[in-house]
Structure formats: C-alpha cells, structure tokens
C-alpha cells in the first residue's frame, strides 16, 4: 500500500471538524481521485498526509511506514503540486525547477538532466529564462507541476492543479498526469471537476464534511445512485398538462422543464423513451431533438453531497 489513512480526525481551533475518522488507502500504480465539495476536507487530508498539519487521532502510513514531519526519507519519494502556484517569482522557470529539484536531488549532473526532462515534460522549453510573472496562468500551472515532478517521485499529489486554466492547458495537464502514471508514479488527484476525475481516475472517493461518503471505481459509484437515465427533449410548448402523466410513469424520478427542454430522470431499468414519446404524441406536442444520457459522476456527486451551495 502506498498510502494508508486510518481513522484520522482533525479539528481546527474554531471547532470545525475538518476530518472525521477519515480512512482511505491508495494502491501502488493507481490514479486515486479525491472528490468533494469545497470545505469537504480534501486539502486538509493532503496536508495531514504530508506531515504539515497536526491531527488529534488516527494514523498515516506512506510506503507502509508511519509518516511524520521528520520522515525526510519518505518525503524524498513524494512530489507535491499545490493548489496555488508556489514558485519563486524572482527566479526563472529553469532556476525554479532546479531549486525545487535540488531540495530532493543533491547531485548536480543528475539534477540538470532531471530539470531538462521536467521542462520537456511540461513543454516549457521556450520559457526557460522567463520569470513566472511573465507567464500566462496556464504556463504558470505547468511550471508548478514541473517543480513538483522533476525529481521523479514515486507518489505525486496533485491538489486541484487545473483551477483557472484554459481547456488546452487543462488537457495538457491531464495528459501529463496520465503519462506520469504510465511511467510508474502513483497519483493522488483532488478536484471538484467531475469530468476530470471521471476521465483520469481508477479509484475515487467522495468526501463530504471530513468523511468518505462513497468510494469505488466510476462504474461502482454510478451504481450507488438511483438515477439510471436522463432524457432531454426540445418541446415547442412547455405545458403542465402532459408533464403530470409523464411524472406518473413507472420508474420516473423527476420531470421538469428547463426553458423549452423537457428533462425526465428515470431510475435504473428499461428506458422510458417510448413511454414519454407516447404521451407527447397523445397530447399533440411538437418536439424536436431528443437526447438520452447515462448518469455521470456529476450526478453521483450531486446526489450524494446534495445540491445546497457550499463555501
């Protein structure tokens, strides 16, 4: 086991319980997704894991050994990509990567090779001598990643690395994470972007209020919820007359209009498309395009954590 958190509890001074008997395990070679709304305890759990935060109870093991602030031997095998870009703005791209790599790798020759590889990996070759404040947000994120992976860690922790980046940079980052995983690194990836986690992670836990509320691979998570199918049909005239019989159809969980789109959500089982279309025809409703989709991780997330707004 690469990481094992067992019943970790962390309460902040103001009495906020950030982690509530939190337990999870990360296996070697997997991309482990840590999902949860803001304030669910994702980053707190990462900081405890890195030995930065005190916690009241529980144990944390990394590479099957107890983790602590002075376990420099374990830290040497971990790479961290923090949520905020954490680099020296006084140093150039190359100097930054060299500096952070140098905190792990003392040999100058080896370090030079690793720095070159990291620059190539994040495609910042054209910006070697540029200072971070001259880089775009996406390029800064890539530099942030390069600083965390240059020393070729065995375990890499990505804490929401794609916040505020454009789709191209995001795609580049996600592809890079897959490559790192293919090269043998175990990845812990925290995010609240469902599609990223769905695209990337082998195993996912969903956290809320400091607890794991669901875990498994994406298929297993989708099976946890009642939703089986979502049907969306463009209608000419939204009308309650035909909405009522649709709602009364067997297995329908909810049916509503969103502007001129009728949205019908059904539970698991046979599709409801023929039944819905029959009612529309019966009420002589003119309709256009029709989409049917299976549940996404977003549906799982919202059903499990609720739709109420978070901080």
């Amino acid at each position: 086991m690469i990481v094992r958190l067992s019943e970790v509890t962390k309460t902040y001074r103001k009495g906020v319980k950030a982690l509530d008997d939190l337990s999870y395990e990360v296996r070697e070679g997997e991309i482990f997704g840590l999902l949860g709304p803001n304030g669910s305890g994702k980053t707190t759990s990462i900081n405890c894991l890195l030995g930065l935060l005190k916690f009241e109870s529980g144990t944390i093991e990394i590479f099957d050994q107890p983790m602590g602030p002075d376990r420099y031997d374990l830290k040497a095998q971990i790479g961290v990509i923090p949520q905020n870009v954490a680099v020296f703005y006084e140093l150039t791209v190359e100097e930054n990567i060299d500096y952070f790599c140098g905190l792990y790798v003392k040999d100058k020759q080896r370090r030079k090779k690793l720095v070159d590889e990291a620059i190539e990996f994040v495609a910042l070759g054209d910006y070697r001598k540029v200072h971070p404040n001259k880089l775009s947000g996406g390029l800064q994120r890539r530099l942030n990643i390069a600083c965390g992976i240059a020393h070729k860690p065995r375990l890499i922790i990505f804490d929401e690395p794609t916040v505020g980046v454009d789709p191209q940079s995001r795609n580049n980052i996600l592809e890079g994470i897959k490559r790192l995983n293919q090269e043998g690194a175990t990845i812990i990836y925290t995010s609240h972007y469902m599609e990223e986690v769905e695209q990337l992670c082998d195993y996912i836990i969903i956290m809320d209020k400091g607890k794991v509320i669901a875990h498994g691979n994406k298929e297993a998570l989708k099976n946890l919820i009642m939703l089986g199918e979502t049907i969306e049909i463009k209608v000419e005239e939204p009308n309650d007359e035909y909405l009522k019989p649709i709602r009364e159809l067997p297995n329908v969980l909810e049916a509503n209009f969103k502007d001129h789109t009728l949205i019908v959500k059904s539970g698991k089982g046979a599709t409801n498309i023929p039944n819905v279309l029959a009612i529309l025809n019966e009420h002589r409703v003119k309709y256009g395009t029709l989409y049917s989709s299976l549940p996404t991780l977003n549906d799982v997330f919202l059903e499990l954590t609720g739709k109420g707004l978070r901080d």
């Binding site: 420099y72 905020n84 600083c147």
Partner: peptide, 18 residues
C-alpha cells in the same frame, strides 16, 4: 513556515532538513 504561504508549505514538504 508552511502556515504562511503555499511556497513555504511546498518547501516544508521537501526532504531537506528544516
């Protein structure tokens, strides 16, 4: 100091003695 900035947290996470 890791509680002061993300940069310090990153440096503190590294294996160089504090």
């Amino acid at each position: 100091q890791a509680n002061q900035s993300a940069l310090a947290a990153r440096i503190t996470s590294a294996p160089t003695h504090r």
